[in-house]
Design a binder for these strands. Sequence first.
DNA 1: GCTTACATACCTACTGGTCGGTATCTTGTT
DNA 2: AACAAGATACCGACCAGTAGGTATGTAAGC
Lengths: 213, 213
Amino acid sequence: MPTTQTARSDATRSRILDAAFAQVYIHGFRAASLNTIVAQAQVTKGALFHHFPDKKTLGYAVVDEVVAPLVHHRWLAPLADTDDPVTALQLGFREHSDADIASGNSALGCPLNNLAQEMSPLDPGFRTRLDALYSTWRRALAAALTRGQRAGTVRADLDADDTAALVVLAQTGIWGAGKSSGRPAVMRQAARAFHAYLETLRPRAPRAPAIHT
Amino acid sequence: MPTTQTARSDATRSRILDAAFAQVYIHGFRAASLNTIVAQAQVTKGALFHHFPDKKTLGYAVVDEVVAPLVHHRWLAPLADTDDPVTALQLGFREHSDADIASGNSALGCPLNNLAQEMSPLDPGFRTRLDALYSTWRRALAAALTRGQRAGTVRADLDADDTAALVVLAQTGIWGAGKSSGRPAVMRQAARAFHAYLETLRPRAPRAPAIHT
DNA sequence: GCTTACATACCTACTGGTCGGTATCTTGTT
DNA sequence: AACAAGATACCGACCAGTAGGTATGTAAGC
Protein backbone atom coordinates (compact mmCIF):
# COMPACT_ATOMS: atom_id res chain seq x y z
CA MET A 1 0.00 0.00 0.00
CA PRO A 2 1.58 3.28 -1.06
CA THR A 3 1.66 5.96 1.59
CA THR A 4 2.33 9.28 -0.11
CA GLN A 5 -0.60 11.19 -1.49
CA THR A 6 0.69 11.41 -5.05
CA ALA A 7 1.39 7.70 -5.14
CA ARG A 8 -2.17 6.85 -4.08
CA SER A 9 -3.50 9.39 -6.53
CA ASP A 10 -1.55 7.81 -9.35
CA ALA A 11 -2.81 4.40 -8.33
CA THR A 12 -6.39 5.65 -8.47
CA ARG A 13 -5.84 7.14 -11.90
CA SER A 14 -4.34 3.89 -13.01
CA ARG A 15 -7.29 1.85 -11.79
CA ILE A 16 -9.68 4.15 -13.63
CA LEU A 17 -7.61 3.82 -16.79
CA ASP A 18 -7.54 0.05 -16.59
CA ALA A 19 -11.26 -0.21 -15.96
CA ALA A 20 -11.93 2.22 -18.79
CA PHE A 21 -9.81 0.17 -21.17
CA ALA A 22 -11.61 -3.02 -20.19
CA GLN A 23 -15.06 -1.51 -20.65
CA VAL A 24 -14.14 0.21 -23.90
CA TYR A 25 -12.65 -3.01 -25.23
CA ILE A 26 -15.83 -4.92 -24.45
CA HIS A 27 -18.52 -2.36 -25.26
CA GLY A 28 -16.82 0.23 -27.45
CA PHE A 29 -16.13 3.80 -26.39
CA ARG A 30 -19.60 5.30 -26.73
CA ALA A 31 -21.37 2.38 -25.08
CA ALA A 32 -18.86 2.20 -22.24
CA SER A 33 -20.62 3.68 -19.22
CA LEU A 34 -18.75 5.91 -16.81
CA ASN A 35 -20.92 4.53 -14.02
CA THR A 36 -19.73 1.02 -14.83
CA ILE A 37 -16.14 2.18 -15.13
CA VAL A 38 -16.10 3.85 -11.72
CA ALA A 39 -17.83 0.83 -10.19
CA GLN A 40 -15.25 -1.55 -11.64
CA ALA A 41 -12.40 0.71 -10.55
CA GLN A 42 -14.00 0.96 -7.10
CA VAL A 43 -13.97 4.73 -7.14
CA THR A 44 -16.66 7.37 -7.49
CA LYS A 45 -17.52 9.80 -10.22
CA GLY A 46 -15.82 12.54 -8.27
CA ALA A 47 -12.52 10.69 -8.57
CA LEU A 48 -12.97 10.11 -12.26
CA PHE A 49 -13.78 13.73 -13.04
CA HIS A 50 -10.99 14.85 -10.80
CA HIS A 51 -8.46 12.97 -12.94
CA PHE A 52 -10.11 13.46 -16.34
CA PRO A 53 -12.06 16.53 -17.44
CA ASP A 54 -14.52 14.51 -19.53
CA LYS A 55 -15.15 11.14 -21.13
CA LYS A 56 -13.39 11.99 -24.37
CA THR A 57 -10.17 12.89 -22.60
CA LEU A 58 -10.36 9.64 -20.68
CA GLY A 59 -10.67 7.88 -24.03
CA TYR A 60 -7.61 9.66 -25.38
CA ALA A 61 -5.67 8.60 -22.29
CA VAL A 62 -6.74 4.99 -22.83
CA VAL A 63 -5.33 5.17 -26.36
CA ASP A 64 -2.11 6.89 -25.36
CA GLU A 65 -1.37 5.03 -22.15
CA VAL A 66 -2.89 1.58 -22.63
CA VAL A 67 -3.50 0.76 -26.28
CA ALA A 68 -0.34 2.27 -27.72
CA PRO A 69 2.02 0.39 -25.36
CA LEU A 70 0.08 -2.79 -26.12
CA VAL A 71 0.59 -2.34 -29.84
CA HIS A 72 4.24 -1.55 -29.43
CA HIS A 73 4.84 -4.56 -27.29
CA ARG A 74 2.90 -6.98 -29.44
CA TRP A 75 3.68 -5.87 -32.96
CA LEU A 76 6.46 -3.32 -33.07
CA ALA A 77 9.06 -4.69 -30.68
CA PRO A 78 9.44 -8.12 -32.37
CA LEU A 79 10.28 -6.40 -35.65
CA ALA A 80 12.76 -3.97 -34.21
CA ASP A 81 15.94 -5.92 -34.65
CA THR A 82 15.25 -8.84 -36.93
CA ASP A 83 16.69 -9.27 -40.40
CA ASP A 84 14.14 -11.99 -41.14
CA PRO A 85 10.81 -10.18 -40.79
CA VAL A 86 8.85 -12.84 -42.66
CA THR A 87 9.63 -15.48 -40.08
CA ALA A 88 9.06 -13.00 -37.27
CA LEU A 89 5.66 -12.09 -38.71
CA GLN A 90 4.64 -15.70 -39.19
CA LEU A 91 5.58 -16.52 -35.62
CA GLY A 92 3.94 -13.40 -34.24
CA PHE A 93 0.66 -13.85 -36.09
CA ARG A 94 0.54 -17.51 -35.15
CA GLU A 95 1.30 -16.86 -31.51
CA HIS A 96 -1.06 -13.95 -31.02
CA SER A 97 -3.99 -15.42 -32.91
CA ASP A 98 -3.64 -18.65 -30.94
CA ALA A 99 -3.40 -16.73 -27.68
CA ASP A 100 -6.50 -14.64 -28.44
CA ILE A 101 -8.46 -17.71 -29.45
CA ALA A 102 -7.45 -19.47 -26.25
CA SER A 103 -8.35 -16.49 -24.08
CA GLY A 104 -11.63 -15.85 -25.85
CA ASN A 105 -10.44 -12.43 -26.96
CA SER A 106 -10.74 -13.44 -30.60
CA ALA A 107 -14.47 -12.80 -30.27
CA LEU A 108 -13.72 -9.26 -29.07
CA GLY A 109 -11.34 -8.33 -31.87
CA CYS A 110 -8.33 -6.07 -31.66
CA PRO A 111 -8.56 -3.12 -29.22
CA LEU A 112 -6.79 -0.79 -31.62
CA ASN A 113 -8.93 -1.71 -34.58
CA ASN A 114 -12.14 -1.64 -32.55
CA LEU A 115 -11.48 1.90 -31.46
CA ALA A 116 -10.31 3.00 -34.88
CA GLN A 117 -13.39 1.64 -36.60
CA GLU A 118 -15.76 3.15 -34.07
CA MET A 119 -14.23 6.52 -33.35
CA SER A 120 -12.10 7.61 -36.30
CA PRO A 121 -15.01 8.90 -38.36
CA LEU A 122 -16.51 10.66 -35.35
CA ASP A 123 -13.67 12.45 -33.64
CA PRO A 124 -10.42 13.92 -34.93
CA GLY A 125 -8.70 13.41 -31.59
CA PHE A 126 -9.21 9.68 -31.80
CA ARG A 127 -8.54 9.57 -35.53
CA THR A 128 -5.17 11.28 -35.38
CA ARG A 129 -4.03 9.16 -32.46
CA LEU A 130 -5.13 5.84 -33.96
CA ASP A 131 -4.02 6.67 -37.46
CA ALA A 132 -0.63 7.64 -36.07
CA LEU A 133 -0.37 4.22 -34.42
CA TYR A 134 -1.16 2.47 -37.68
CA SER A 135 1.29 4.68 -39.55
CA THR A 136 4.03 3.94 -37.07
CA TRP A 137 3.31 0.26 -37.42
CA ARG A 138 3.45 0.41 -41.21
CA ARG A 139 6.72 2.32 -41.10
CA ALA A 140 8.28 -0.21 -38.74
CA LEU A 141 7.14 -3.03 -41.00
CA ALA A 142 8.46 -1.36 -44.13
CA ALA A 143 11.80 -0.76 -42.45
CA ALA A 144 12.02 -4.39 -41.35
CA LEU A 145 11.12 -5.58 -44.83
CA THR A 146 13.79 -3.37 -46.35
CA ARG A 147 16.35 -4.77 -43.92
CA GLY A 148 15.20 -8.23 -44.92
CA GLN A 149 15.69 -7.39 -48.56
CA ARG A 150 19.25 -6.27 -47.85
CA ALA A 151 19.86 -9.41 -45.83
CA GLY A 152 18.43 -11.60 -48.59
CA THR A 153 15.54 -12.98 -46.51
CA VAL A 154 12.90 -11.01 -48.42
CA ARG A 155 12.24 -10.87 -52.16
CA ALA A 156 13.99 -7.89 -53.66
CA ASP A 157 11.31 -7.10 -56.22
CA LEU A 158 8.52 -6.15 -53.87
CA ASP A 159 7.53 -2.69 -52.68
CA ALA A 160 8.22 -2.53 -48.95
CA ASP A 161 5.64 0.20 -48.24
CA ASP A 162 2.83 -1.51 -50.10
CA THR A 163 3.64 -4.85 -48.54
CA ALA A 164 3.67 -3.28 -45.09
CA ALA A 165 0.21 -1.84 -45.79
CA LEU A 166 -0.99 -5.28 -46.78
CA VAL A 167 0.34 -6.89 -43.61
CA VAL A 168 -1.43 -4.33 -41.41
CA LEU A 169 -4.60 -4.72 -43.45
CA ALA A 170 -4.37 -8.47 -42.96
CA GLN A 171 -4.13 -8.13 -39.19
CA THR A 172 -7.26 -6.01 -39.27
CA GLY A 173 -8.96 -8.58 -41.46
CA ILE A 174 -7.95 -11.65 -39.47
CA TRP A 175 -9.03 -10.24 -36.13
CA GLY A 176 -12.13 -8.84 -37.77
CA ALA A 177 -13.02 -12.27 -39.10
CA GLY A 178 -12.65 -13.73 -35.63
CA LYS A 179 -14.85 -11.06 -34.13
CA SER A 180 -17.58 -11.02 -36.75
CA SER A 181 -17.92 -14.78 -37.01
CA GLY A 182 -17.38 -15.63 -33.37
CA ARG A 183 -15.90 -18.87 -34.68
CA PRO A 184 -12.23 -19.59 -34.01
CA ALA A 185 -12.14 -21.83 -37.09
CA VAL A 186 -12.82 -18.83 -39.34
CA MET A 187 -10.04 -16.84 -37.73
CA ARG A 188 -7.67 -19.79 -37.97
CA GLN A 189 -8.40 -20.24 -41.65
CA ALA A 190 -7.73 -16.57 -42.28
CA ALA A 191 -4.49 -16.77 -40.34
CA ARG A 192 -3.46 -19.87 -42.29
CA ALA A 193 -4.13 -18.20 -45.64
CA PHE A 194 -2.12 -15.17 -44.57
CA HIS A 195 0.71 -17.40 -43.40
CA ALA A 196 0.84 -18.87 -46.89
CA TYR A 197 0.92 -15.38 -48.36
CA LEU A 198 3.82 -14.41 -46.13
CA GLU A 199 5.69 -17.42 -47.43
CA THR A 200 5.56 -15.90 -50.92
CA LEU A 201 7.56 -12.93 -49.68
CA ARG A 202 10.69 -15.02 -49.34
CA PRO A 203 13.14 -15.11 -52.21
CA ARG A 204 12.21 -17.88 -54.59
CA ALA A 205 14.47 -20.87 -54.56
CA PRO A 206 15.75 -21.08 -58.09
CA ARG A 207 14.00 -23.92 -59.86
CA ALA A 208 16.08 -23.56 -62.95
CA PRO A 209 19.63 -22.41 -63.56
CA ALA A 210 19.78 -19.01 -61.95
CA ILE A 211 20.86 -16.06 -63.96
CA HIS A 212 22.56 -14.13 -61.16
CA THR A 213 25.29 -16.17 -59.52
CA MET B 1 -48.60 8.24 -55.70
CA PRO B 2 -49.85 4.72 -54.98
CA THR B 3 -53.52 4.44 -54.29
CA THR B 4 -54.09 1.14 -52.51
CA GLN B 5 -53.56 0.97 -48.80
CA THR B 6 -51.08 -1.89 -48.93
CA ALA B 7 -48.98 -0.09 -51.51
CA ARG B 8 -48.74 3.02 -49.38
CA SER B 9 -48.02 0.91 -46.34
CA ASP B 10 -45.19 -0.83 -48.15
CA ALA B 11 -43.82 2.53 -49.23
CA THR B 12 -43.81 3.72 -45.62
CA ARG B 13 -42.05 0.58 -44.47
CA SER B 14 -39.54 1.09 -47.24
CA ARG B 15 -38.81 4.67 -46.25
CA ILE B 16 -38.27 3.61 -42.66
CA LEU B 17 -35.93 0.86 -43.81
CA ASP B 18 -33.91 3.21 -46.01
CA ALA B 19 -33.61 5.83 -43.28
CA ALA B 20 -32.64 3.16 -40.78
CA PHE B 21 -29.93 1.86 -43.09
CA ALA B 22 -28.56 5.36 -43.63
CA GLN B 23 -28.46 6.14 -39.91
CA VAL B 24 -27.01 2.77 -38.99
CA TYR B 25 -24.36 3.12 -41.67
CA ILE B 26 -23.32 6.52 -40.34
CA HIS B 27 -23.67 6.05 -36.58
CA GLY B 28 -23.73 2.30 -36.03
CA PHE B 29 -26.74 0.33 -34.83
CA ARG B 30 -26.75 1.22 -31.16
CA ALA B 31 -26.05 4.91 -31.70
CA ALA B 32 -28.66 5.18 -34.45
CA SER B 33 -31.59 7.00 -32.87
CA LEU B 34 -35.12 5.93 -33.69
CA ASN B 35 -36.17 9.55 -33.33
CA THR B 36 -33.73 10.56 -36.05
CA ILE B 37 -34.79 7.64 -38.23
CA VAL B 38 -38.48 8.50 -38.09
CA ALA B 39 -37.67 12.17 -38.70
CA GLN B 40 -35.60 11.33 -41.76
CA ALA B 41 -38.25 8.95 -43.05
CA GLN B 42 -40.88 11.64 -42.39
CA VAL B 43 -43.03 9.32 -40.33
CA THR B 44 -43.80 9.08 -36.63
CA LYS B 45 -42.88 6.59 -33.99
CA GLY B 46 -46.30 5.07 -34.29
CA ALA B 47 -45.60 4.14 -37.87
CA LEU B 48 -42.23 2.66 -37.02
CA PHE B 49 -43.52 0.50 -34.20
CA HIS B 50 -46.45 -0.51 -36.33
CA HIS B 51 -44.11 -2.02 -38.93
CA PHE B 52 -41.39 -3.29 -36.57
CA PRO B 53 -41.93 -4.64 -33.07
CA ASP B 54 -38.66 -3.20 -31.73
CA LYS B 55 -35.34 -1.69 -32.74
CA LYS B 56 -33.55 -5.03 -32.99
CA THR B 57 -36.06 -6.41 -35.46
CA LEU B 58 -35.68 -3.27 -37.53
CA GLY B 59 -31.94 -3.89 -37.51
CA TYR B 60 -32.43 -7.46 -38.70
CA ALA B 61 -34.64 -6.19 -41.52
CA VAL B 62 -31.94 -3.73 -42.53
CA VAL B 63 -29.48 -6.60 -42.80
CA ASP B 64 -31.83 -8.90 -44.67
CA GLU B 65 -33.45 -6.42 -46.98
CA VAL B 66 -30.83 -3.74 -47.56
CA VAL B 67 -27.32 -4.93 -46.72
CA ALA B 68 -27.60 -8.46 -48.13
CA PRO B 69 -28.84 -7.34 -51.57
CA LEU B 70 -26.07 -4.73 -51.60
CA VAL B 71 -23.43 -7.37 -50.95
CA HIS B 72 -24.84 -9.71 -53.54
CA HIS B 73 -24.94 -7.02 -56.17
CA ARG B 74 -21.50 -5.67 -55.45
CA TRP B 75 -19.46 -8.74 -54.71
CA LEU B 76 -21.32 -11.93 -55.50
CA ALA B 77 -22.90 -11.26 -58.89
CA PRO B 78 -19.68 -10.33 -60.72
CA LEU B 79 -18.17 -13.68 -59.71
CA ALA B 80 -21.14 -15.77 -60.67
CA ASP B 81 -20.23 -16.64 -64.21
CA THR B 82 -16.62 -15.74 -64.78
CA ASP B 83 -13.84 -18.22 -65.42
CA ASP B 84 -11.26 -15.53 -64.73
CA PRO B 85 -11.98 -14.54 -61.12
CA VAL B 86 -8.62 -12.85 -60.61
CA THR B 87 -9.32 -10.25 -63.27
CA ALA B 88 -12.90 -9.88 -62.05
CA LEU B 89 -11.64 -9.29 -58.50
CA GLN B 90 -9.02 -6.79 -59.58
CA LEU B 91 -11.58 -4.84 -61.57
CA GLY B 92 -14.18 -5.03 -58.82
CA PHE B 93 -11.86 -3.93 -56.03
CA ARG B 94 -10.50 -1.10 -58.17
CA GLU B 95 -13.94 0.07 -59.21
CA HIS B 96 -15.57 -0.08 -55.80
CA SER B 97 -12.72 1.44 -53.86
CA ASP B 98 -12.51 4.30 -56.36
CA ALA B 99 -16.27 4.79 -56.18
CA ASP B 100 -16.30 4.87 -52.38
CA ILE B 101 -13.39 7.30 -52.28
CA ALA B 102 -15.15 9.56 -54.76
CA SER B 103 -18.42 9.46 -52.85
CA GLY B 104 -16.78 9.96 -49.48
CA ASN B 105 -18.03 6.60 -48.29
CA SER B 106 -14.48 5.37 -47.82
CA ALA B 107 -14.47 7.28 -44.56
CA LEU B 108 -17.55 5.36 -43.43
CA GLY B 109 -16.25 1.90 -44.22
CA CYS B 110 -18.24 -1.08 -45.42
CA PRO B 111 -21.82 -1.35 -44.14
CA LEU B 112 -21.58 -5.10 -43.74
CA ASN B 113 -18.32 -4.99 -41.87
CA ASN B 114 -19.39 -2.05 -39.71
CA LEU B 115 -22.43 -3.97 -38.52
CA ALA B 116 -20.52 -7.20 -38.09
CA GLN B 117 -17.82 -5.59 -35.98
CA GLU B 118 -20.31 -3.75 -33.81
CA MET B 119 -23.10 -6.27 -33.34
CA SER B 120 -21.73 -9.78 -33.82
CA PRO B 121 -20.31 -10.06 -30.32
CA LEU B 122 -23.47 -8.60 -28.79
CA ASP B 123 -26.36 -10.34 -30.46
CA PRO B 124 -26.75 -13.79 -31.99
CA GLY B 125 -29.43 -12.59 -34.40
CA PHE B 126 -27.01 -10.16 -35.98
CA ARG B 127 -24.10 -12.56 -35.77
CA THR B 128 -25.79 -15.44 -37.58
CA ARG B 129 -27.09 -13.15 -40.32
CA LEU B 130 -23.80 -11.35 -40.90
CA ASP B 131 -21.68 -14.45 -40.58
CA ALA B 132 -23.94 -16.17 -43.10
CA LEU B 133 -23.35 -13.34 -45.54
CA TYR B 134 -19.60 -13.65 -45.15
CA SER B 135 -19.79 -17.42 -45.49
CA THR B 136 -21.83 -17.15 -48.68
CA TRP B 137 -19.34 -14.72 -50.04
CA ARG B 138 -16.39 -16.99 -49.24
CA ARG B 139 -18.14 -19.95 -50.85
CA ALA B 140 -18.87 -18.01 -54.02
CA LEU B 141 -15.26 -16.90 -54.14
CA ALA B 142 -13.93 -20.40 -53.61
CA ALA B 143 -16.21 -21.74 -56.35
CA ALA B 144 -15.06 -19.05 -58.77
CA LEU B 145 -11.41 -19.75 -57.94
CA THR B 146 -11.94 -23.46 -58.54
CA ARG B 147 -13.53 -22.71 -61.89
CA GLY B 148 -10.56 -20.51 -62.68
CA GLN B 149 -8.20 -23.33 -61.82
CA ARG B 150 -10.02 -25.64 -64.21
CA ALA B 151 -9.98 -22.95 -66.89
CA GLY B 152 -6.27 -22.35 -66.34
CA THR B 153 -6.63 -18.72 -65.24
CA VAL B 154 -5.75 -19.45 -61.61
CA ARG B 155 -2.71 -21.23 -60.21
CA ALA B 156 -3.53 -24.88 -59.64
CA ASP B 157 -1.44 -25.26 -56.47
CA LEU B 158 -3.39 -22.93 -54.21
CA ASP B 159 -6.12 -23.79 -51.75
CA ALA B 160 -9.34 -22.23 -53.02
CA ASP B 161 -11.00 -22.01 -49.59
CA ASP B 162 -8.04 -20.42 -47.86
CA THR B 163 -7.54 -17.99 -50.72
CA ALA B 164 -11.21 -17.05 -50.62
CA ALA B 165 -10.86 -16.35 -46.90
CA LEU B 166 -7.90 -14.11 -47.61
CA VAL B 167 -9.76 -12.14 -50.27
CA VAL B 168 -12.65 -11.45 -47.89
CA LEU B 169 -10.23 -10.55 -45.13
CA ALA B 170 -8.53 -8.14 -47.51
CA GLN B 171 -11.79 -6.40 -48.34
CA THR B 172 -12.40 -5.93 -44.62
CA GLY B 173 -8.87 -4.62 -44.21
CA ILE B 174 -8.89 -2.23 -47.15
CA TRP B 175 -12.17 -0.62 -46.22
CA GLY B 176 -11.12 -0.61 -42.59
CA ALA B 177 -7.94 1.24 -43.51
CA GLY B 178 -9.96 3.84 -45.37
CA LYS B 179 -12.28 4.31 -42.44
CA SER B 180 -9.73 4.38 -39.66
CA SER B 181 -7.33 6.70 -41.43
CA GLY B 182 -9.88 8.92 -43.10
CA ARG B 183 -7.24 9.33 -45.81
CA PRO B 184 -8.00 8.07 -49.31
CA ALA B 185 -4.30 7.64 -49.95
CA VAL B 186 -4.06 4.98 -47.26
CA MET B 187 -6.98 3.08 -48.73
CA ARG B 188 -5.52 3.40 -52.21
CA GLN B 189 -2.17 2.03 -51.06
CA ALA B 190 -3.88 -0.93 -49.44
CA ALA B 191 -5.90 -1.58 -52.59
CA ARG B 192 -2.75 -1.37 -54.71
CA ALA B 193 -0.91 -3.86 -52.51
CA PHE B 194 -3.82 -6.25 -52.67
CA HIS B 195 -4.00 -5.85 -56.45
CA ALA B 196 -0.39 -6.99 -56.61
CA TYR B 197 -1.18 -9.97 -54.40
CA LEU B 198 -4.05 -10.97 -56.69
CA GLU B 199 -1.62 -10.92 -59.59
CA THR B 200 0.34 -13.70 -57.88
CA LEU B 201 -2.71 -15.95 -58.11
CA ARG B 202 -2.33 -16.29 -61.87
CA PRO B 203 -0.39 -19.22 -63.26
CA ARG B 204 3.27 -18.35 -63.45
CA ALA B 205 4.72 -17.81 -66.89
CA PRO B 206 7.73 -20.14 -67.04
CA ARG B 207 10.87 -18.06 -66.75
CA ALA B 208 13.21 -20.92 -67.36
CA PRO B 209 12.94 -24.12 -69.38
CA ALA B 210 9.89 -25.73 -67.89
CA ILE B 211 10.05 -29.19 -66.49
CA HIS B 212 6.44 -30.09 -67.20
CA THR B 213 5.71 -28.86 -70.69
C1' DG C 1 -4.26 26.70 6.54
C1' DC C 2 -4.43 25.85 1.92
C1' DT C 3 -4.43 22.69 -1.67
C1' DT C 4 -5.13 18.05 -3.43
C1' DA C 5 -8.05 14.10 -3.70
C1' DC C 6 -11.88 12.49 -3.48
C1' DA C 7 -17.41 11.58 -2.16
C1' DT C 8 -22.42 12.23 -2.94
C1' DA C 9 -26.53 14.13 -4.41
C1' DC C 10 -28.44 15.97 -8.20
C1' DC C 11 -29.37 17.93 -13.07
C1' DT C 12 -30.70 17.93 -17.92
C1' DA C 13 -30.93 15.54 -22.21
C1' DC C 14 -32.12 11.74 -24.69
C1' DT C 15 -32.99 6.77 -25.23
C1' DG C 16 -36.22 2.84 -26.70
C1' DG C 17 -40.76 1.86 -26.07
C1' DT C 18 -46.08 2.34 -24.88
C1' DC C 19 -50.75 3.54 -25.40
C1' DG C 20 -55.12 5.67 -26.28
C1' DG C 21 -57.02 7.76 -30.09
C1' DT C 22 -58.14 8.67 -35.23
C1' DA C 23 -58.45 8.62 -40.19
C1' DT C 24 -58.63 5.87 -44.13
C1' DC C 25 -59.28 1.88 -46.75
C1' DT C 26 -61.59 -2.74 -47.38
C1' DT C 27 -65.25 -5.85 -47.23
C1' DG C 28 -69.79 -8.08 -46.50
C1' DT C 29 -74.71 -7.11 -46.72
C1' DT C 30 -78.64 -5.49 -48.56
C1' DA D 1 -75.08 1.36 -55.26
C1' DA D 2 -75.08 2.47 -50.62
C1' DC D 3 -73.90 1.76 -46.26
C1' DA D 4 -72.37 -0.40 -41.89
C1' DA D 5 -68.60 -2.34 -39.59
C1' DG D 6 -64.29 -3.76 -38.91
C1' DA D 7 -59.49 -3.85 -39.85
C1' DT D 8 -55.26 -1.39 -41.11
C1' DA D 9 -52.14 2.29 -40.85
C1' DC D 10 -50.66 5.80 -38.45
C1' DC D 11 -50.28 9.75 -34.87
C1' DG D 12 -47.99 11.94 -30.90
C1' DA D 13 -47.97 12.72 -25.97
C1' DC D 14 -45.99 10.31 -22.53
C1' DC D 15 -43.03 7.04 -19.56
C1' DA D 16 -39.14 4.96 -17.05
C1' DG D 17 -34.33 4.44 -17.36
C1' DT D 18 -29.73 5.88 -18.15
C1' DA D 19 -26.29 8.82 -20.07
C1' DG D 20 -22.54 12.33 -19.17
C1' DG D 21 -21.64 15.99 -16.32
C1' DT D 22 -21.81 19.32 -12.10
C1' DA D 23 -22.12 21.52 -7.49
C1' DT D 24 -21.28 21.26 -2.95
C1' DG D 25 -19.10 19.27 0.82
C1' DT D 26 -15.26 16.94 3.40
C1' DA D 27 -11.06 14.95 4.97
C1' DA D 28 -6.39 14.31 4.88
C1' DG D 29 -1.57 15.47 3.55
C1' DC D 30 2.08 19.14 2.81
